[in-house]
């Protein structure tokens, strides 16, 4: 249904927010991304999983241009990243990113963390920026902490603030890089709840995570990576069913058993 809503009057090409073809990246001699193809349609929710060192974080960091790539193409909303610095920067503004280690600015209050880009990038007035930021802080259910500093919050609270901060610029796609991996177990749920609510609202998401419960609930495509390659991709229903790639079955068994 989402496809119809956002696809009005657009051809299929622009309906596809991320279009990755034959992407290759090396760190020195290490081949971290090996011929990766991936398309993410508007409104799609893609979960990327795989063992550590499989290249999944590098892939998601390529999507907003935090990492460069050496071969292949990566189109973000019709702009090929890495060709032109100004176009790359403009395309990046359509993304919001949430990091494993939150990366909140420790010297700024929660509210200022959220308003910084609104003021300096989007050019909003002080008033406007605060209103937008407070709306998003309410969405992640933490408005009462607006005046606190990140160091005064729990990990789960910090990550929810980080999500609000990323939402403030009204991105067309949200990128999550292992958002719950640095959290204590009792805090994982509060962050996943926010992410599920975001998915329900129709946000396009690419999410690197090992939370298979989350993947089962919201993903419409699960991608399994290992050794810099995408080994398996399937609708969530099939991925967790019996038909998957042997490597992803093995991986699933390992992490579901803990």
């Amino acid at each position: 249904m989402n496809h119809e809503k956002s696809g009005q009057g657009m051809n299929t090409q622009s309906d596809c927010i991320v279009d990755i073809q034959g992407l290759n990246k090396w760190f020195g001699a290490l081949h971290v991304l090996n011929d990766v193809d991936l398309t993410v349609a508007s409104g799609a929710r893609v979960v990327v999983c795989g063992p550590s060192g499989s290249g999944k974080s590098t892939l998601i960091r390529c999507i907003n241009g935090l990492e460069s790539y050496q071969r292949g193409t990566l189109c973000l909303a019709g702009t090929t990243l890495g060709l032109n610095a100004r176009e790359t920067a403009a395309a990046r503004r359509l993304t919001g990113m949430v990091f494993q280690s939150f990366n909140l600015f420790p010297h700024l209050t929660v509210l200022s963390n959220c308003t910084l880009a609104l003021r300096r990038v989007a050019g909003k007035s002080h008033r406007e920026a605060q209103d937008i930021a407070m709306a998003h802080l309410e969405k992640v259910r933490i408005p009462e902490k607006a005046g606190s500093y990140p160091g005064q919050l729990s990990g789960g609270q910090q990550q929810r603030v980080a999500i609000a901060r990323a939402l403030c610029l009204n991105p067309r796609i949200m990128l999550f890089d292992e958002p719950t991996s640095a959290l204590d177990p009792e805090m994982i749920k509060e962050v996943l709840d926010v992410m599920v609510a975001l998915a329900r609202d129709g946000m396009t998401m690419v999410c690197v995570t090992h939370e298979m419960g989350f993947a089962r609930e919201v993903a419409d495509q699960v991608v399994f990576m290992d050794g810099g390659r995408i080994l398996d991709r399937a609708p969530a229903r099939d991925f967790f069913g019996a038909s998957g790639h042997p490597r992803s079955r093995l991986f699933l068994e390992t992490i579901l058993k803990h």
């Binding site: 935090l66 990091f99 600015f105 901060r165 610029l169």
Partner: peptide, 13 residues
Amino acid sequence: PKGQSEAARALSL
């Protein structure tokens, strides 16, 4: 931390 300038870049600053 390196994440600070990465976060700034991700926010398009």
